[in-house]
Amino acid sequence: MRYALQKIGQFAIVFFIVTFTVMILMRLGLNAPGDPARTLLGGTADQELIDATTEKYRLDSNPFVQYVFWMTNMVQGDMGFSVPNSQPVFDYIQGRILTTLLLGFYAIFWGLVIAVPLAVRQAHKRDSWFDKFGSGAAFAFVSAPAIVLAPILTILLIKENTIGMPPPFGDFQVTIGGWFPRIGDKVYPWQDLGEHFRNFFVPTLVLTLPIAAIFSRLLRGDMVMTLQADFVTLASAKGVSPRRVLWVHALRNSLFSLLTSVGLQIGGIVGGAIVAEQFFDLDGMGSMLVTAILQKDLFTVQSASAILVGSVVIVNLTVDLMYGVLDPRIRHARAIA
């Protein structure tokens, strides 16, 4: 318990440092240095409006006061106003946050669903053709981040391509691709599951394949080590079935790198989501953040980054607490620490 509180404290500090830095940086520079309200409102705003905005959001006070003011308002659902979008930032984010959350969740979820069975089987049949093929594929996808994968998958799955052969080989033509829409109006799972799938499939794939590759490489390595441990041989010598040896005795002892990586990948997913959302015209938080930065939409940038940083921090906090759930030795050490 004390450990958990300690960790929460640590992560709160991280959250504060990142969000506070974002806030300060947004106050500096831009179009009118030192005058965030003018930047925020654009070049043509009159002085009266600028003064009123400065007054309303306390933009001329000490940064710490501004920070507390910002956070207090944000918790209450007031994130300020987005001038380029002519709507409150809260509404702006609300319409988009779910897309990114779903995308991030799918990326991690499918990454695990693909990687875990693959890695367990690879470790079990080490150095077999299956293992070599799996490692090769994983290596290929590790080296293909979202920005590389997105155009490739677009060509393969979204665009229609006609493949033909010149006459000596026969005159035939096949059309492939065009199976998934490029521009999808966002469809949520509770609206139409099939359409939602078509909508999210390719962007999810773009995010999940590199992640699955990293996960499977890490888990395979740990699992190979674990399978050489004495207790695994003992489990076999007790008459435990190979499947149970793998999934019950060996897997839980091999999850540490994987778990750490889940926490680290969350940060990467935010980056990947920006690429995927831009590329596939899914309007989520990633594309929103990019637009907002370009439009100097100060309040949107602030709040969106606070939410993203908050999610990354929460996932990593969960990961840290999960170590203890996985391994009683860590729980024990934490209890007496």
């Binding site: 441990a229 207790f231 003992l234 010598a237 007790k238 435990v240 005795h249 391994d327 030795r329």
Partner: peptide, 20 residues
């Protein structure tokens, strides 16, 4: 046969039991 008719004790008790 394993565990039922033949059983084995390993050398190092520190590594032969499943830690979790």
């Amino acid at each position: 046969v394993w565990g039922k008719e033949m059983a084995m004790i390993f050398q190092d008790p520190m590594t032969s039991l499943n830690p979790v």
